[in-house]
């Protein structure tokens, strides 16, 4: 474990062996040691957050820009808080969704933000892979705060940390991801991260909201299961993670309606009883209360939804810290 005293700017060089990346675009390409390093660093950050004075100078003099092409409350706030705990200067920029496909190109926008003086750019973008397109053209560190249906790496890392914190291990746990798996970058990154760390992942949702090709993708995602029946899916689960359902799904004909989704896929106390007695309930937020999670489950003793939010700050501090270190190599 990294002790908190080490979390000073000069300590960054110590990670050069396990941490060589300049950007965090995805979780897919993280090695297990890299993920473990993030977990250890997160623990150190949690310790900092428990101090009366929650601030260390690791990113002093650095500028972190959050660039969000999509609305976000918690992710943006979480990153901003994380950067501020590390003493970075934070600039929040909101881009118009309309400029995504028209007008200034993404690469030009990022180069402009760099020219303004950004050292680290945290970007959310509605199009999958936007960060991949941008990364080769930017000198700043780029952090993916969510892209399209594709990835949300820091969410997967904070979920992993939360599970690890509660369960003490990942390998062999049954983790069930329920809901709109197809359109969920949270689900996609969690599938990568959790299967990599040895969890048995089962995704569950209505057939129209399940991604194609998962069942036969055992090489990519060892042990993954796909299930449309929630009772079967959550049986003996250690972790149940419900995903946010977007209203558009009903309008586009993927679902008959909310009532149907609730009847089929809401985690209520009856379904929760099918899981292991010490199971935990997760949700990336924001929760549609009484849709994905019954209110009593959301606010009940098994829910770790608030832990996820708190851990999110620590995970993002860890990522920013590790990136700032890599930058000085």
């Amino acid at each position: 474990m990294i002790r908190s005293e080490q979390i000073e700017p000069c300590a960054a060089a110590e990670h050069s062996g396990a941490w060589a990346r300049r950007h965090v675009l995805d979780i897919e390409d993280f090695s297990v040691p890299e993920i473990e390093l993030v977990m250890q660093t997160t623990s150190a950050m949690k310790e900092i957050l428990s101090r009366p004075l929650k601030k260390v100078p690791a990113l002093r003099g650095k500028t972190v820009v959050t660039l969000f092409y999509e609305a976000s409350t918690r992710t943006r706030g979480s990153f901003e808080m994380a950067a501020k705990h590390l003493s970075a200067d934070v600039v929040n920029m909101t881009a118009q969704a309309s400029s995504v496909t028209k007008g200034e190109s993404l690469i030009n926008t990022l180069n402009t933000i760099e020219a303004i003086g950004a050292d680290i750019i945290i970007m959310r973008h509605p199009l999958s892979g936007a960060h991949y397109c941008a990364a080769p053209h930017v000198k700043a560190n780029l952090v993916n705060a969510g892209d399209g249906w594709h990835a949300h790496p820091t969410q997967a890392l904070l979920d992993l940390y939360t599970i690890l914190n509660r369960k003490g291990r990942i390998a062999g746990l049954k983790v069930v991801i329920v809901g709109d798996v197809k359109h969920s970058r949270v689900a996609h990154s969690n599938i990568w991260c959790l299967t990599k760390m040895g969890a048995n992942v089962v995704v569950c949702g209505p057939p129209t909201l399940l991604p194609e090709g998962l069942k036969t993708a055992q090489l990519l995602f060892p042990g993954i299961g796909v299930e449309t029946n929630i009772e079967k899916a959550v049986k003996d689960a250690d972790v149940v993670m419900e995903l946010r359902l977007q209203k558009e799904r009903m309008q586009s004909g993927l679902l008959p309606g909310l009532r149907d989704f609730i009847a089929g896929y809401q985690l209520d106390s009856k379904r929760l009883a099918l899981t292991k007695p010490d199971s935990i309930v997760m949700h990336p937020g924001p929760v549609n209360e009484d849709v994905e999670l019954a209110a009593d489950v959301l606010h009940g003793g098994r829910s770790v939804v608030n832990d996820q939010v708190t851990n999110g700050v620590a995970v993002r501090m860890a990522i920013l810290y590790l990136l700032a270190g890599s930058r000085e190599q």
Binding site: E28, S128, G129, D147, G148, W149, H150, A151, K182, R185, H188, P211, E212, G213, L214, T216, A217, L220
Partner: peptide
Amino acid sequence: NEGIIATRLGLCG
């Protein structure tokens, strides 16, 4: 193309 690669990339197939 629809399939596991599209799923992996988060692209509509």
